Simulated scan of single mutants.
Amino acid sequence: MIKTIQPTNNQSYQWIQLEDASVDEINQLVNEFDLPHDFITSSLDTNEISRLEEHLNKNGDHFTLLVINYPYVQENEDIRQRYQTQAISIVYNHETLITSFQSSFTDIYSYLIDDSKKVTFDSPELIMLEILRLIARSYLLFIEDLEEIIMDLEMTVVHRTENELFFQLMGINRGLVNFQVAIEQNQQVIESLHKVVKADDNNADIYSKIHDVLIEQKQAKATINRLRQYNDKISDILSNVVNNNLNNIMKVLTVWSIILTIPTIISGIWGMNVPLPGTENNMSHTLLIVGSGLLMLIVYMLFKKNKWI
């Protein structure tokens, strides 16, 4: 679906939004602006990496491509598939801004549009930078959600060892890896853009905003690294708890197997078809049962005293 949005402040540029692009819509924009095909289709590739490219078309128009990965949440998926990233293509020059994205980006970019569906920024470059800022901010918000989940797991991991915990840790780790890779790629692109834009009087506002976006990107990177360390620590704790619980279970089973072996040994000895003391006594059966019980009790108390059970 193609939308064309005009600015409200008498600026001469246009913003073309391409959401969930079809083949015909992609070809339409490629032919109209004489752009490389991948400038538009990059947003459709789930494995697309962030990058910065430039293109000079046959009419002498210069276009810059930014491919940036943004975070989103698949609400209907379990936690192992919930936290994902997807690319958005941003193609711009001084007169035109083209954004190609999938529907998962809608929540992020809707902030840029007011109720009348008209843009309130002075240039395509400023809109592009606001999109970058919102993406960096979105990473921070999603990271905060993951941090809350990790903190909750840290409080319960000592008392719980269900498979659900392992699945949650797997999902969190997968989300953190997705975010970390995307954040590092985005940072490289923004740093390249920061070098391209000159810090002169004409670009002072743009240069300053790129610097602000870069700071938020570095903040997201530092936070994601810290959370990965937390997640690794919780995984280690959970492994230790599981191993400790298994050791305790094995210790209890071993102790009880020793205790229950006592009557087996005694009955086996007095059950042999050879003369033994007390076999002619009518109370021998009862005495053997009572004796076995006493021995079992004594062994149990010894184990209990030494805190083996």
Score class of each variant (00 low, 15 high):
residue 143 I to C: 04
residue 119 V to E: 08
residue 86 Q to N: 05
residue 128 M to N: 08
residue 145 D to G: 14
residue 83 Y to N: 04
residue 122 D to W: 00
residue 137 R to N: 13
residue 140 L to V: 03
residue 111 Y to H: 03
residue 133 R to V: 02
residue 133 R to H: 05
residue 103 S to E: 06
residue 81 Q to N: 15
residue 89 S to K: 06
residue 139 Y to L: 03
residue 145 D to T: 15
residue 98 I to D: 01
residue 108 I to Q: 12
residue 120 T to F: 14
residue 132 L to Q: 02
residue 121 F to A: 05
residue 106 T to L: 12
residue 114 D to R: 01
residue 124 P to S: 04
residue 138 S to N: 08
residue 106 T to N: 14
residue 145 D to Y: 14
residue 155 M to W: 05
residue 140 L to T: 05
residue 81 Q to D: 14
residue 112 L to E: 02
residue 108 I to S: 06
residue 117 K to E: 15
residue 143 I to G: 05
residue 87 A to F: 09
residue 81 Q to R: 14
residue 125 E to Y: 09
residue 80 R to A: 12
residue 142 F to M: 12
residue 122 D to A: 01
residue 125 E to W: 07
residue 103 S to F: 07
residue 121 F to R: 07
residue 123 S to H: 02
residue 93 N to M: 04
residue 97 L to V: 05
residue 142 F to K: 07
residue 118 K to P: 08
residue 153 L to M: 06
residue 129 L to F: 06
residue 111 Y to W: 04
residue 104 S to K: 14
residue 111 Y to I: 01
residue 113 I to R: 01
residue 111 Y to F: 04
residue 112 L to P: 01
residue 136 A to H: 05
residue 114 D to S: 02
residue 130 E to F: 04
residue 92 Y to P: 04
residue 101 F to C: 07
residue 82 R to D: 01
residue 126 L to A: 10
residue 118 K to V: 09
residue 101 F to G: 00
residue 126 L to I: 10
residue 121 F to W: 06
residue 139 Y to P: 00
residue 146 L to E: 11
residue 131 I to R: 08
residue 111 Y to C: 03
residue 110 S to H: 08
residue 113 I to P: 00
residue 130 E to M: 05
residue 118 K to E: 15
